[in-house]
């Protein structure tokens, strides 16, 4: 189990850096069609910010910001967003993920509808990647055994 680090430099630097990393990750997700990046890259950076918080502030505090339950819910929500937009296109009579069909719902020209549709897809991908990144790191670092389970299992570590 990862406990809070006793090195004051790392803790203070991480504390100041984490909000900026998160804003940067959201910038990478949102500007995927203007600059390099996109949903996957932004999601990885966003997940890395949570991992940095988990490493520097310990498991107990990190669980208040992002727990396993939240990560699981967020990952499924991202996939729901992705497939929901795809199915919406299918319902509008186009192919799956053919965003031109969204123009009648959003009341914009098809080109702009394509831009907005791909933004929604990228947000979904980013949320899922962030949650899965955090969940994988969480599982590896705890060995799959949470502190509250340790008493039940009688595991000494």
């Amino acid at each position: 189990m990862i406990s809070i680090t006793d090195d004051i430099i790392i803790r203070a630097v991480a504390r100041i850096l984490i909000p900026f990393i998160q804003v940067y990750a959201l910038y990478v997700i949102m500007h995927g069609h203007h600059s390099p990046g996109g949903g996957f890259q932004g999601g990885v950076i966003l997940g890395a910010s949570f991992i940095l918080y988990l490493i520097t502030h310990g498991l107990e505090e990190a669980k208040e910001k992002m727990s396993e339950l939240k990560a699981g819910l967020l990952s499924t929500f991202g996939i729901l967003l992705y497939s929901g937009i795809g199915l919406l296109c299918l319902i509008m009579g186009r192919n799956y993920l053919d965003y031109g069909g969204l123009s009648t719902i959003l009341k914009v020209v098809p080109a702009q509808a394509r831009s907005l549709g791909i933004l929604g897809i990228e947000i979904g991908v980013g949320i899922t990647v962030m949650a899965i990144m955090f969940s994988v790191f969480f599982d590896i670092s705890t060995g799959g055994i949470l502190p509250e389970d340790e008493e039940d299992l009688g595991v000494n570590r």
């Binding site: 504390r15 100041i16 998160q22 910038y27």
Partner: peptide, 21 residues
């Protein structure tokens, strides 16, 4: 459009980590 996206994103991040900075 991008300014509104920015406001939404900064509000989200501030909500997530207002106790850090």
């Amino acid at each position: 459009f991008h300014l509104i996206l920015g406001i939404i994103c900064t509000l989200l991040v501030s909500y997530l980590s207002h106790d850090l900075l």
